[in-house]
Design a protein around this nucleic acid. Structure first.
Lengths: 143, 143
DNA sequence: CTAGATGCAAACAGTTTGCGTCACT
DNA sequence: AGTGACGCAAACTGTTTGCATCTAG
């Protein structure tokens, strides 16, 4: 559970108002121990605050992401992206503009699981090297 | 460039009809050397086949993905998923149902880039271990 | 008191589907 | 000749935005 004063301090440190809705949304994500969608968060939060709107959940999830209180599971574009299924490679992904660049597999040391996950048949390991691309770094400076 | 007879053979080996539209769509993705969206593919293909419809691009991209001729850049859900920004961990992602499970970082040997990518400031490395989860494997058998 | 947060509805983007027609095998 | 692909439009899902109202700081 997320304590009242802890949450207030957390918001304070991120420059956010500590509203009731925000506390319940944040506590819900924390309590789910999973990777919920805004829709699922909305369903759960509505049990505590029936009057809440889906837009408020979206707005606050975005706010939490921007402040770093939450993290996105995937840093890729929301829309479908495809590539030829030829050579093994990984991706450089810019967390600002979400652009993608290929990275030769040779550039990463040997990738191996120490223990096989139970009941999960591994077929491939995909690595995303996250960071800020040159174009976004340039914009950063000029601001 | 993708040769006519090569493409016919490729489709044949995947049990697909080798239509003109498919050849142009496939050749376009291959020629882009990137990670195009269906929308971008559509724009490019329309220059060669002005009468093509966006739905045909979507349908065929899906067909190519299903046959393995193309690959998705991200195997995550299309919609937003979030998690608390607490502990470092990676993800097991089922390529069938797209369910996500956490994987302790300790389970992967040391992850390090041999050479830093030029002009890209790395902030984090995210690993997706792709495969088939237990639930999907069970369905597989019963089919 | 005032900037910012909420709730609602409408707008939007990306994607899928149903159906009549047409083309590959 | 028949199955499956195409093109179009309409439907759908997930997400954002504009605006009036309300609340935390």
């Amino acid at each position: 559970m997320v304590r009242e004063d802890e949450f207030v301090a957390l918001c304070r440190s991120h420059g956010l108002a500590a509203t009731h809705q925000r506390r319940v949304i944040y506590a819900t994500v924390a309590s789910l121990h999973g990777h919920p969608s805004p829709e699922l968060i909305y369903e759960k939060v509505k049990k505590k605050i029936p009057s809440i709107s889906l837009a408020t959940v979206y707005n606050n999830v975005r706010t939490f992401l921007a402040s770093g209180m939450l993290r996105e599971v995937s840093m890729h574009h929301g829309s479908l992206r495809v590539e030829p299924n030829n050579h093994e490679h990984h991706h450089l992904v810019c967390v600002r503009c979400r652009s993608i660049t290929d990275l030769h597999a040779k550039n990463l040391g040997l990738l191996r699981l120490k223990t096989q996950p139970r009941g999960f048949r591994v077929t491939r390991i995909a690595v995303d090297v996250l960071g800020i691309c040159a174009a976004c770094a340039a914009k950063e400076v000029s601001k």
